[in-house]
């Protein structure tokens, strides 16, 4: 019974950190540019497909370090894509109403889907976890898949790095001030356009990284872009706009509620996430934490 409890908790954690990995870049861009980037999932998908292709280029079984290196490389590639999109699309969205970013990024999501189909085809693809992460640890009579632990650890590391950047470094603090009041930041001599671009590139790189790290988590298909996006939206909104700490906490809370709900009320799988999002937003309409933190 205790073992069951632990197992469900662990599964909830894995889900939470997977969604947080996707949500991290989303909340960053949202916090700074107020663009709810519908295409974020599409770029997570591109990161995953790139990882699949690169790993298949290496011969023999892939080790953890090669896998990590590939994921970071994909993050860099998607980051560059982010730079291009910032220049061609986001640049033009600043002048118009926030809602228009919805349709532009929705169009980009469709483009991602079409592009992936053109390059990789419509068939399902699977990437196994790298050697060393394909087994399970045995804790008493409890099976803990090592890849689950890897996802949880990745989520925590990404959170800590982001948190450190935002709160402990100069550029992170500058970013906070731009998010809070771009006009004032501009007056104080901060190059806000450079900060916008930095946020977009970092957000897209995070999408690529999430795609790479999560590529072995589920099947790959051109529809992958839409799989995580609603969960990620829920997490960043419940967490509070642009708030990375909030998103981290929200992911954990929603992950646990969904996991225990699914196990103990099996008749309604998947419904608890929405109940929790609605419930929390009714209780705290501005999300759990507010401001970019």
């Amino acid at each position: 019974m205790v073992g069951d409890f632990l197992l469900v908790g662990l599964n909830g954690m894995t889900w939470a950190m997977a969604v947080f990995l996707v949500a991290a870049g989303l909340t960053l861009i949202f916090g700074i540019l107020h663009i709810l980037n519908f295409s974020h999932g599409g770029f997570v998908m591109i990161g995953a497909y790139l990882t699949y292709t690169l790993i298949n280029q290496t011969s023999g079984p892939t080790g953890i370090f090669v896998f990590l290196a590939v994921a970071v490389l994909c993050a860099a590639v998607v980051g560059v894509l982010g730079y291009v999109i910032d220049r061609t699309v986001f640049e033009r969205l600043k002048a118009v109403d926030d809602s228009y970013s919805l349709i532009a990024t929705y169009a980009m999501l469709i483009l991602c889907e079409g592009g992936v189909k053109l390059v990789w085809g419509p068939d399902f693809i699977a990437l196994p976890p790298p050697a060393g992460l394909d087994g399970a640890l045995l804790l008493g009579d409890l099976f803990i898949p090592s890849y689950s632990l890897f996802v949880i650890l990745s989520g925590i590391v990404v959170f800590l790095v982001l948190d450190f950047w935002i709160h402990r470094t100069r550029s992170g603090k500058v970013m906070q001030s731009v998010a809070l009041d771009p006009w004032m930041a501009n007056v104080l001599g901060i190059n806000i356009n450079a900060m916008f671009t930095t946020a977009v590139v970092a957000g897209f790189a995070l999408a690529g990284l999430a795609g790479g790290l999560l590529a072995p988590n589920q099947s790959l298909s051109p529809g992958l872009g839409g799989t995580y996006i609603i969960q990620a939206f829920g997490v960043i909104i419940v967490g509070g706009i642009g708030n990375v700490r909030g998103a981290f906490i929200a992911a954990l809370v929603l992950g646990m509620i969904d996991a225990f709900g699914t196990v103990y009320v099996p008749e309604y799988p998947g419904i608890f996430f929405y109940i929790a999002v609605a419930g929390i937003l009714m209780y705290r309409p501005q999300g759990l934490l507010s401001g970019i933190r």
């Binding site: 939206f233 829920g234 929405y274 999002v277 937003l281 501005q286």
Partner: peptide, 17 residues
């Protein structure tokens, strides 16, 4: 309870329910 983007996501969650 909510406005702006929070209203959007709250209605999204209720709609999904």
């Amino acid at each position: 309870r909510a406005s702006g983007i929070y209203f959007a996501i709250l209605t999204l969650a209720l709609g999904q329910l």
